[in-house]
Nucleic acid binder design. Structure first.
Length: 755
DNA sequence: GAGTTTGAAACT
DNA sequence: CAGTTTCAAACTC
């Protein structure tokens, strides 16, 4: 079964690649082509997830928890293993996966975990080529590097979570590796990196775990878009200067998803090269990490920022995006790897024949679903895709849409860079990236700002933002025990980690049961409690809905804000925080949201930087300007990111839809945070959202969405399904949205094959 | 770093 | 559903 699926996927991919469009894209950027492929799988996964009820917070939590547990185990094992050698690592990883799998089984987490290990083994086994080994080795090395204080991790850790970094690195690495190595490889790399990090920190480990696990790979894929973009920019520049690595890797990417082992191997070898890793190493910092090789080298080389950025980006992802990562990884394994991985996938696949991996994805999705956000496929998106595609490609074969988690964060990096989640930012940032000229800087800046705020100057800010950002949310809960939505970590579906300054925290893997139970409880009250608060739609969306047209912003807050004193110009406002304009749903007073006013006067954030918009808006408001300007301008640095100022965006990860639309899953807490179900006010937005979804579905996931029954399947019934549809909301209209999503998932597979 | 403000989340 | 309280982030000093 797996094999056939893989075959299909590959075929679909090949088709894409063959297509003129694909070629064109490739010409633009090597990475792009792959994306589409990846996406499809992702979708499948998503769809699956929905079925299983994975979406339900419990599942998600379970996944995470299981992951955490795994991580811990892993870490323990991993350490020895690492020292021992690759093979050992693999075995350990497998074991860990198995264990995790046991934990996750219910949630489907198992497959994911399992796959990675298996895939790796298989890959290694299957791939006689030494190159694979190299690749594997690289990751290990990377791990070590990461693990080592010297590595980026240290920096990252200082600022944020190590785990995230590992993830980031792993992610970045993955893309390259994945293509080349195929499935198993990337995973290993990811795992390794994560492990190293894990070693460093316990909790971090947890996060790292996620990354480490197959998830990491998936994450990479999903995230990759964003990351990839960012990386891309970096890479491009880096390439110019001296990134030897990149060129090769990049070339590889576009071409192969899984297939070209040789190249990959070569790349990997290069990566292996001590000179490269370490060399840069100074760079090493994080870079070392895995990811880095490629990206880092490129970017990394550029310096700290690269690593940091990566780390930052990944941070968010790790925690939240784990699921996706897992899925993607699986897919990668499936696609690239081969049978073994496929076997695993098969297990998961059951639901979605097309994607063996789909199953895997699902679990991950669950977590990320919370953060789901939809982004329309705009030109920008396309760009993102392209940019990101490199990564995505690796992971997913054609794809329609992918769901990003969180915040996950995920986090900001991709959004800002790749995702375009915030269209505005995206535009700005992306443009910068695309241009490549600025790409580097822009990417760097964006990354820095968005993801972590690595810059020392704004440490606090960064930290805060970072914390806010999906990637590394850090809470400081004192009374809620981090078991309520007050807790950003909890709301984002992630465990609290060291950076958190919470007290009496129960949001830890150790208290998995409690966390899950609490989540369930909250979900029972509000199925969308963990759904992304902000739903993103493509810029083009306007077409879709009347509402959308009203709201220039691509994204909208589901429930809308209720600001009275902040004029929606401060982070108190969830809309503003999420980088989206206020909508009809909002009950805010004196709305001056720079991203878009409730009235509709809101500036379109998409292209123009929010700032610009703000000015305009402000002009109207007059007084507001003063207020807004400060914020906006203060962020000059953020200009690129300015759009980003909003924490959410950065965190979000975008997933490409089959057609071109992206779904951004915000890792950011905001995204995840529960939203009103169905308040009347929300309804419209929902409608809008729904419309967006529909549009997206039609455009992006046309058949898939339409075809599937997902909604019918269980989405409705199971809370999880609700989560899946988060954007839609609880209202009936929302349901339709849900349906779309669900449908999309199931259909997804079909799309892939078709295209 | 402490204190205040703010608005979401939770509760009634 | 509306009002109130609780909570933690955002913000200010």
């Amino acid at each position: 079964m797996d094999t056939p699926e893989k075959t299909q996927i590959s075929s679909s991919l090949s088709m894409f690649e063959d297509s003129p469009v694909f070629n064109y894209i490739n010409s633009l950027s090597p990475i792009k082509p792959v994306k589409s492929i990846h996406l499809t799988p992702a979708f499948n996964l998503l769809s699956f997830a929905s079925h299983p009820s994975i979406f339900t917070s419990p599942h998600v939590s379970s996944h995470k928890e299981s992951r955490f547990l795994k991580r811990h185990n892993y870490m323990d094992q991993s350490k020895p293993v690492l020292s021992s050698g690759e093979g050992t690592k693999v075995s350990t990883s497998e074991e860990a996966c198995l264990e995790a799998g046991q934990l996750c089984n219910s949630s489907a987490g198992l497959p994911e975990n399992f796959d990675p290990g298996v895939s790796l083994d298989d890959a290694s086994l299957e791939l006689p080529n030494e190159p694979l080994r190299y690749i594997i080795e690289l990751p290990q090395t990377l791990k070590y590097d990461c693990g080592s204080p010297d590595c980026d991790q240290a920096p990252c850790i200082t600022e944020t979570n190590c785990a995230t970094e590992s993830t980031c690195t792993s992610l970045s690495i993955v893309p390259f590796v994945q293509d080349d190595s195929g499935n198993g490889f990337p995973d290993d790399g990811v795992e390794i990196a994560g492990i190293s990090q894990i070693k460093q920190k316990g909790e971090t480990i947890g996060c790292a775990w996620e990354n480490l696990t197959p998830d990491a790979t998936d994450m990479l894929i999903f995230n990759s878009p964003n990351d990839s973009e960012a990386f891309r920019g970096v890479i491009q520049k880096s390439l110019d200067p001296g990134t030897k690595f990149f060129p090769a890797p990049i070339s590889v990417f576009p071409k192969n998803h899984t297939t070209e082992l040789p190249q990959t191997t070569v790349d990997s070898d290069e990566l292996k090269d001590p000179s490269l890793q370490t060399g840069e190493a100074g760079v090493t910092d994080c870079m070392s990490g895995n990811l880095m090789h490629n990206v880092e080298t490129g970017a990394g080389m550029s310096a700290p920022f690269s690593s940091e950025s990566c780390s930052n980006l990944h941070r968010g992802f790790r925690r939240r995006c784990l699921d996706f990562e897992m899925l993607s990884a699986r897919r990668n394994n499936l696609n690239g790897s081969s049978n073994t991985s496929s076997s695993v996938d098969k297990q998961l696949v059951p639901v979605m024949p097309d994607n063996g991996s789909s199953v895997c994805i699902v679990p991950g999705i669950g977590l990320h679903l919370n953060a789901l956000a939809i982004t329309s496929s705009d030109d920008k998106n396309t760009k993102h895709r392209i940019l990101c595609s490199g990564t995505q490609k690796l992971s997913f074969p054609s794809s329609t849409t992918s769901i990003l988690t969180p915040k996950i964060g995920q986090e900001a990096v991709h959004e800002s860079l790749a995702s375009a989640s915030t269209e505005r930012e995206t535009d700005v940032v992306e443009n910068g990236v695309q241009l490549a000229e600025d790409a580097f800087q822009a990417s760097a800046c964006a990354i820095n700002e968005e993801f972590n705020q690595t810059s020392p100057n704004k440490k606090r800010r960064r930290l805060e933002q970072a914390g806010e950002n999906e990637a590394c949310k850090r809470c400081s809960c004192k009374k809620s025990k981090c078991l309520k939505l007050y807790c950003e970590c909890f709301a984002a579906g992630v465990y609290c980690i060291e950076p958190c300054s919470c007290q009496d925290c129960f949001n830890k893997p150790i208290h998995e049961d409690i966390v899950l139970a609490t989540r369930k409880q909250i979900e029972s009250r509000n199925p969308l409690a963990f759904a992304p608060k902000v739903i993103r739609t493509s810029d083009s969306i306007p077409e879709v809905g009347d509402d959308s047209s009203k709201t220039p912003a691509s994204a909208r807050h589901k429930r809308g804000c209720n600001c009275k004193k902040s004029s929606c110009l401060k982070k108190y406002c969830e809309c503003y925080q999420g980088g989206v304009g206020c909508s009809i749903n909002c009950r805010c007073e004196g709305c001056k949201n720079a991203f878009g006013r409730k009235d509709g006067s809101a500036m379109v954030e998409t292209e123009g930087a929010p700032e610009e918009d703000e000015e305009t808006d402000l002009d109207e408001n007059g007084v507001d300007r003063n207020l807004e300007k400060p914020d906006m301008f203060n962020n000059e640095e953020q200009n690129l990111v300015s759009a980003l100022p909003t924490p959410l965006q950065p965190c979000r990860t975008l997933v490409q839809l089959p057609l071109g639309s992206f779904i951004s899953i915000g890792s950011s807490s905001t995204l995840y945070k529960g939203q009103g179900y169905g308040k009347p006010s929300i309804i419209r937005p929902r409608n809008t959202i729904e419309k967006h979804f529909q549009t997206v579905a039609e455009d992006e996931m046309p058949e898939m969405l339409l075809d599937k029954d997902c909604a019918g399947s269980g989405m409705k019934t199971s809370p999880s399904s609700k989560r899946i549809c988060p954007p839609q909301g609880s209202t009936p209209g929302q349901r339709s949205g849900r349906k779309l999503i669900l449908q999309s998932i199931p259909s997804f597979p079909s799309l892939t094959p078709q295209h």
